[in-house]
Nucleic acid binder design. Structure first.
Lengths: 147, 147
DNA sequence: ACTGAAGTATAGCCAAGGCTAAAAAAAATG
DNA sequence: CATTTTTTTTAGCCTTGGCTATACTTCAGT
C-alpha cells in the first residue's frame, strides 16, 4: 500500500478520510444484508441479496467474492452465503450504528421515512466518536421524555 | 420453506438512493473547493485543487474535465478553473448544507473537530427534507439558548 | 531572449462496482 | 429418468476515480 501523499495538507485530511469510509460502505451494506437474510430466512441466497440490494445478480456475486477475499464471508459454489465471526461482528456493529443514526435523525425532527432513506448513506461516515455522542444524546432525550 | 422470492423488495430503494447520492459526492466536493479557492485566492489552479482535495494532480485534472462536461465549470488549457452560474449555485448550496451538518453534529454533542471530519462524508446523503429539519432544530436551539 | 524550473495535461495502469448475455449447475416436473 | 425451469456463476464491457511517468506549456531569472 503506497503512501497517499508525503505531506497531506490540513484541509485534505477530511477528504481522504471520507474516501476511506466510502470504500468500506458497500462491504458493510452487504454484510449487514447477509446477516439480516440469515436471521430472517435461515440462509442468504445470491438472488435475495441482489434483489434487496437493488443490483443485478452478477453484481452481488462479485461483491460476495470480495467479501470472501476480505475474510468476512464464506460460501461454496451454488450454495448460500454465510458470515465468518468477523463478518458477523461487523454486521452487528453496522446494524447498531444504523439504528442509532435513524433514531438521532428522528430525534432532531426528520420524518421517520426520510430518516430511513438518508441513514443508509450517512451511517458509513459516522465515526465511533460521533456515534457515542448520538447515543448519549438519545439516552438523555429518553430520560427527559420520561419526566 | 417460506416462499419469499415473489415479494418485491422495498428495501432496495434506499440503497439505490444512497448510490445515486454518492455519485454526486465527488463533483460536489470539487465544486465547493473551487468556489473556496476563487474566494480565497482569486482563482482556482489545478495544483491547489489537487493539494487541498488530497489527490494527485492528474486526478484533479480528470475531475475538472468531468465538471466541464457537466456544465459546472469552465477552463482553458494551462489556465485556472472557474465555475459556471450553475456551478456557483451548487457550490453555495453544498457549502450551506455542510455548515448545517457540522452545526447539527456539534449541537447533539459531537466534538467540533470530529464533526468537521465526519460532516465531509455525511453531507452528501442529507436530503433537503433532513436539511430542513436540521435547520429548524438549530434555530430552536438558538432561541432556547437565548432565554 | 534563452533556459531551466514550475505548473499543467496526457497516456496508460489499476480496482471497484455497476451492467447484459450466456453458460453451467441444481432443482423441479412430467 | 429425462427434460425443463430456476438459480448461480462466468465472461466481458463500461465509468469513476485513484495512481505514476512522461510530455508539454508558461513563466521567471539571468
Amino acid at each position: 500500500m503506497p503512501e497517499t501523499s508525503s505531506r497531506p495538507s490540513k484541509q485534505s485530511v477530511r477528504f481522504i478520510r471520507a474516501r476511506e469510509a466510502q470504500a468500506c460502505a458497500v462491504m458493510e451494506d452487504y454484510v449487514e444484508m447477509i446477516g439480516d437474510l440469515i436471521r430472517d430466512l435461515g440462509e442468504a441466497r445470491t438472488a435475495d441479496i441482489a434483489e434487496r440490494m437493488g443490483v443485478a445478480h452478477p453484481t452481488a456475486t462479485k461483491a460476495i467474492t470480495r467479501l470472501k477475499r476480505e475474510g468476512l464471508a464464506v460460501s461454496r459454489p451454488y450454495r448460500g452465503v454465510f458470515l465468518t465471526d468477523e463478518g458477523e461482528a461487523l454486521a452487528n456493529r453496522v446494524r447498531a450504528r444504523h439504528r442509532s443514526v435513524v433514531e438521532l435523525l428522528v430525534a432532531v425532527g426528520v420524518p421517520r421515512e426520510t430518516a430511513e432513506l438518508d441513514a443508509e448513506g450517512i451511517e458509513h461516515h459516522v465515526s465511533d466518536r460521533s456515534l457515542e455522542a448520538f447515543n448519549k444524546f438519545l439516552a438523555n432525550e429518553a430520560k427527559e421524555g420520561k419526566d
